[in-house]
Design a protein around this nucleic acid. Structure first.
Lengths: 331, 331
DNA sequence: TTGTAAGCGTTATCAC
DNA sequence: GTGATAACGCTTACAA
């Protein structure tokens, strides 16, 4: 920086002003400095800068998952899950224009304290927190840290924190109504884990529209979980003709189970998924599903976070997206 | 930090020593400082630290993709591709014990300079560079920067840089031999783009074992691309009975095409994929495929990078993994 | 509009 | 073994 200042014949302060294009710099000087910068190939040192500005220009994407027993491939599951992929894509895209970078921090409860320490150290200016479990203490911990944060769903306790969510119940109702309209008379559903709000709410919404007694099996939001749940459902209720599965991934598994048992979809059993992830298109037949605009939601989270970072006292708010039904061939 | 020093009745220097557990500190003092630290809830400021140590304790995972025309969802494709997911998982896992974090930086050629600027600013200590295209200038640019880097494949030019790769030709040969052994007499293949070394090498290896005249269609490593290529192949060679597809994703598409045309797999046509990604298990029938230990490879990349960061002059080396054939039902 | 100078919170080099 | 003290490279009052 001193080099640049010397080359341009000005002080370091002025160079700094040019770099941060501060209001008052004489056009002539500004050009001279710019030239000097390109000439010397000067690049500001971010550590020095953030030491004084207290900004790192990066945010963390914390993906917090509860420990599930027999889960030896936590990282793998996270990073190959299309849902998280869409979140990452949406957030990255929204952050890029602000020149803010994303640090991806997966965590299970075993190393929550590591994450907290990381955040406290000031590595990042804020947190995008993806937490599904209702009992996850991390949202509260992060909030207690006082670091700007945005959640991917309504916090389970009353936490004054911004969040983005989709109207889960409405989505489930859309699915129920579609199956009903289609003429299905014996509905059933495969839900997500009930300790995950999204799981419970979708089941709730479906039952509100389809009847509180619809046969239900609980899945785990994975493909194989969906397949197993479908088999259990078919064992108990071989005559079902309409199935709502609370995620596309599970629906893909369910489709497999149905096929294995010789049920034609949608002729014998109509199936509706949830998410509209890429999995929905990979299914045979392509899945009718409740679309959740995940990328847009993640982008909104990023926007909110930036806003919170830029204006510290900003009051938290929630943005709820409306799901829509995407009709394809499975129902 | 001054607080801690005061509370422990020592100097800041000693506190620093305790934190970085330097050799010489009297046990008594050390404990006192530790107590003071927990008491005051002190957390070191990373910016200040990296300003002097010139280390950020984070590395970038740069995913460089060539621009493909009509590609409006670059980010989405990247982040939902199971291959990149596995890479991220493997790298994250290997970095974690070193307390090094991962900044994910996707880039197409439009913003290479942004990436270069980012790297020059010293945000990260090193780069894990995933670059598939042969003509990608980024590896050379990164190398010119002098920042530690590890590539995910042999650089196209002679660049003194460490890289990790799988023996692509061997993998393709494994596939060919399996099909041949199985008794297939009319082989064909769907390759990846030939400007991507992995694409060219797999084709090469397959032809070396199966004959240089095997019918070939070029895909683009996507599901739909594989499906289209399979249709073209079947149009031209309706009698083929053995198919090597250069990625599982494309194989999934090919399986679909075969099904649509009433070909049974593996009875009418045996299919072998490449990668052993999660897609291989989602296929119907499950895919026989050439396994690439992507997570391990990514972990190795991370290890190499850490080594290069820790010992600056370290000479570059390459680590080549052996692929293996995973037999499932499609061949 | 520009320059001077005082930090920002660490680590590292010395003496002691 | 421990404590001053000088960097590290930048931003930002405050003065001019």
């Amino acid at each position: 920086m001193d080099q640049v200042a010397a080359a341009a014949g000005v002080s370091r302060a002025t160079v700094s002003r040019v770099i941060n294009n501060a209001a008052s710099v004489a056009p002539g000087i500004r050009d001279a400095v710019q030239r000097a910068i390109t000439q010397t190939g000067y690049v500001p040192n971010v550590a020095a800068r953030s030491l004084v500005t207290r900004r790192s220009n990066s945010v963390a994407l914390v993906i917090s998952e509860p420990d599930r027993p027999d889960d030896h491939s936590f990282l793998n599951r996270i990073f190959t899950d299309p849902y998280f992929g869409r979140v990452t894509a949406g957030a990255t895209g929204a952050l890029r224009p602000h020149d803010v970078h994303l640090v991806v921090v997966p965590t299970d409860s075993a190393d929550h304290h590591q994450v907290v320490r990381y955040l406290r150290q000031g590595h990042v200016d804020g947190v995008l927190l993806i937490s599904s479990s209702e009992h996850d203490p991390l949202p509260a911990q992060v909030h207690a840290l006082g670091i700007p944060a945005v959640l991917s769903a309504r916090p389970s306790g009353p936490l004054p924190v911004s969040y983005v969510d989709v109207d889960q119940r409405l989505g489930a109702r859309l699915a129920a109504e579609h199956l009903l309209t289609r003429g299905c008379g014996r509905l059933a559903t495969i839900s997500g884990p009930l300790d995950i709000p999204a799981g419970a709410e979708r089941l709730d919404g479906f039952r509100a529209a389809a009847g509180t007694t619809v046969p239900t099996e609980i899945g785990d939001f994975t493909r194989v979980g969906g397949e197993a749940a479908a088999h259990r459902l078919l064992d108990e209720h071989p005559d079902l003709d309409g199935l709502f599965v609370a995620s596309d991934l599970m629906a893909e598994g369910a489709l497999r189970a149905l096929q294995d048992r010789g049920r034609r979809v949608p002729d014998d059993v109509a199936v509706v998924g949830f998410d509209d992830s890429s999995a929905a298109l990979e299914c045979r037949p392509p899945l009718t599903t409740v679309r959740q605009p995940v990328e847009e939601m993640a982008a909104e989270m990023a926007q909110l976070l930036i806003a919170h970072i830029d204006t510290p006292g900003r009051s938290p708010r929630s943005v709820i997206f409306q799901p829509t039904l995407v009709r394809r061939e499975s129902a």
